[in-house]
Design a protein around this nucleic acid. Structure first.
Length: 619
RNA sequence: GGUCCCGUGGUGUAGCCUGGCCAAACACGCGGCCCUGUCAAGGCCGAGAACGCCGGUUCGAAUCCGGUCGGGACCGCCA
């Protein structure tokens, strides 16, 4: 037994599925620490790894019972583990006892089955199964653990409600697709570690309990027991710490970091994210960009065996907003947006002209072959536009026809390159709103008309970006974050035309998913203070919140920059799902609840007392 | 902070717009019996939901109205 176990341990250490034939007789009794025998399935072969090469071999398998097909005489089951599933046959004449036990098997029972691997009788192979050429004819069967009927079918095409899947996540995660996701995620992170190490980056862990900042995203707070009334904040990102590591002279830092942001969720947002966090000294944006391009090459090669060709294309952020209506464009389909504000400056269509007169814009999009869109479909599109806050949506040919001159119609159709039979959607609104709405419509049209070329990997760098943006109230705020360096040649615009100042910031977008973003940082105290001031922060505030960083900048600071790649979103893009919860093992709902654990939950009064916290009743 | 969609047996849906024919239909699953080559096994039989919750309108509500809870999508927000 010892011999078999040792061979297998070595096998386990050297990795996954490539070690057929390495295992011994499998399973069996080992001696435990207290001297009594116990069954170990750790050394047993995997259900999903049995192949025709194992023919004639006696194996002991451990797994979960999938479907049972009981013919009265013969009984078939699919025995499943993480590696896949294999068919086990129970024959009443050869092994009456095993057959009797098999008669009482139900879905999701955990069993141990012993038997001989054999080829299936000619004609009964199952080409849809990886192990479909073979089967195991059972001689022994033991039920290790019985199971209640699960609340939903454990298979890939289960259509159970997501809330139910989250409540029973441990069952949901039994589905082959979810197990493949977990394994793929592991391989992505492993490739990242390898790559960063090979480029002489050092992984440093940063604290989870930080100082809160009212800037940026809302903090998750942790009350301090020893300091009544004071709170720690959980990291939104290790941003300042990684910059300080550069001041410390580390040169190249990375971390697979957990970050928490207390914001409202979306299909592509979770509360707790994992990011590959990177910072490096004496670098330019070109260094960071080519480093990350190399990372994608390595990850795609390691995980999917796909070659990515670099350098990747780049797109100016303002151009992206104009042409695609978003700063994370999906370039797997064309559908470009056009601005027709100038062409309509004097139009007789009052809705359009008045929007322009109020400083807005008119943007449009051609729907290929869209003249056959039904009134109902158009109403649905209008509802999307309205839901996004647009004043309205119109189309051409459509309700505005009698107000538009022939020249205007022709100019619009030319601007969007509309073909005969195309419908043109028009939105007139404030610039930012028009962009958002057109971006949503563009995506919706692509989905409905199936214009997305699945299977393509469309990477693009959004670069340059801009240092400042206008917030909802029309106030100036930062585009990326307040530590981002302006372009040196745009310095003179800082005071008077801040919105035109380009930032040394870059986002990497894949198939419409933002998979990384970063910048070259400011490393001069004076410039950093100036940017804070332009952002409207008071001296006191700057000192209180960023004093440590500014102080550090007085002790010899290397120029530095970095990037962070959200692994959850990267996984989303790689596994082509548009639901981020599908790539997280234990995700929370849109309202931040863990339906399995029942978190968040009230706590004992004693715990609150210890933390000096009094609960204010909800009004 | 806001807009929209959804909530019917264990699961997924139909019914809801146009209230009574719905103590509610279908499929899967579940239970029993039959069946020695199936793999979404098959055949026969069977059990299982007063329709998220509260209130209102009505002679009468799964169906209409209001509120509430839960899930989801989106705008804002997410440095």
């Amino acid at each position: 037994m010892g011999g078999a176990a040792q061979r297998c341990r070595r096998g386990a250490a050297c990795g996954a599925a490539e070690r057929h034939g390495e295992w011994g007789t499998g399973g069996g009794f080992l001696e435990g620490p207290s001297g009594e025998a116990f069954v170990s399935g750790f050394v047993a072969p995997h259900c999903g790894s049995i192949t025709a090469a194992d023919e004639g071999r006696e194996v002991e398998l451990y797994g979960w019972v999938g479907r049972r097909r009981d013919h009265g005489g013969l009984i078939f089951i699919d025995l499943r583990d993480r590696w896949g599933a294999v068919q086990i046959v129970f024959n009443p004449t050869n092994a009456p006892q095993a057959h009797a036990v098999a008669s009482d098997l139900r879905s999701e029972y955990v069993v141990r089955a012993k038997g001989v691997v054999g080829r299936r009788p000619a004609g009964s192979e199952n080409p849809r199964m990886a192990t479909g050429e073979v089967e195991v004819t059972a001689s022994e069967l033991e039920v290790i653990s019985s199971a209640k009927t699960p609340p939903f079918q454990i298979d890939d095409d289960t259509d159970a409600d997501e809330a139910l899947r989250l409540k029973y996540r441990y069952l949901d995660l039994r589905r082959p697709r979810m197990q493949q996701m977990l394994e793929m995620r592991h391989r992505v992170v492993k490739a990242m570690h390898r790559y960063m190490d090979a480029h002489e980056f050092v992984e440093v862990e940063t604290p989870m309990l930080l100082r809160g900042t009212p800037e940026g995203s809302r903090d998750f707070l942790v009350p301090s027991r020893l300091h009544p009334g004071s709170f720690f904040a959980l990291p939104q990102s290790p941003q300042q710490l990684k910059q300080l590591l550069m001041v410390a002279g580390l040169g190249r830092y990375y971390q697979i970091a957990r970050c928490l942001r207390d914001e409202d969720l979306r299909a592509d947002r979770v509360v707790e994210i994992t990011q590959l966090d990177v910072e490096m000294s004496f670098c330019t944006e070109e260094d960071v960009i080519s480093l990350i391009e190399g990372l994608w090459v390595q990850v795609w090669k390691d995980v999917m065996g796909v070659d990515i060709s670099t350098p990747l294309p780049r797109l100016d952020m303002q151009e992206s907003l104009l042409r695609f209506g978003t700063d994370k464009p999906d370039l797997r389909y064309e559908l470009e947006i056009a601005d027709v504000s100038e062409q309509l400056r004097a139009t007789g269509a009052t809705v359009l002209r008045s929007a322009l007169e109020q400083g807005g814009v008119v943007r449009c999009l051609a729907v290929p072959g869209g003249s056959n869109l039904s009134r109902r479909e158009l109403d649905e599109l209008a509802l999307i536009a309205k839901g996004a806050g647009a004043k309205g949506l119109t189309w051409m040919p459509g309700p505005l026809d009698k107000f538009l001159t022939e020249g205007e119609v022709a100019a619009i159709r030319t601007a969007v390159r509309a073909q005969a039979g195309d419908l043109v959607l028009l939105v007139a609104d404030r610039r930012r709103k028009a962009e958002t709405v057109m971006g949503l419509l563009r995506r919706e049209i692509a989905r409905r008309r199936k214009l997305i070329r699945e299977g393509e990997w469309k990477f693009v760098w959004i670069y340059p970006m801009y240092l400042f943006e206008e917030d909802d109230q029309g106030n100036l705020t930062y585009g990326h974050h307040p530590f981002t360096s302006p372009w040196p040649e745009d310095m003179h615009l800082l005071q008077d035309r801040p919105y035109q100042v380009r930032a040394r910031a870059y986002d990497c977008v894949l198939n419409g998913v933002e998979i990384a973003g970063g910048s070259i940082r400011i490393h001069e105290r004076a410039l950093q203070e100036r940017v804070f001031e332009i952002l409207g922060l008071s001296r006191e505030k700057i000192h209180a919140q960023f004093g440590h960083l500014l102080d550090a900048f007085e002790y010899g600071v290397p120029p530095h920059g970095g990037i962070a790649s959200g692994i959850d979103r990267l996984m989303m893009a790689m596994s082509r799902t548009d639901n981020i919860r599908d790539v997280v093992a234990f995700p929370k709902t849109q309202s931040h609840q863990d339906l399995m654990l029942g978190a968040p939950s009230p706590v004992d009064q004693a715990q609150l007392d210890e933390l000096h916290i009094a609960i204010k009743p909800v009004t």
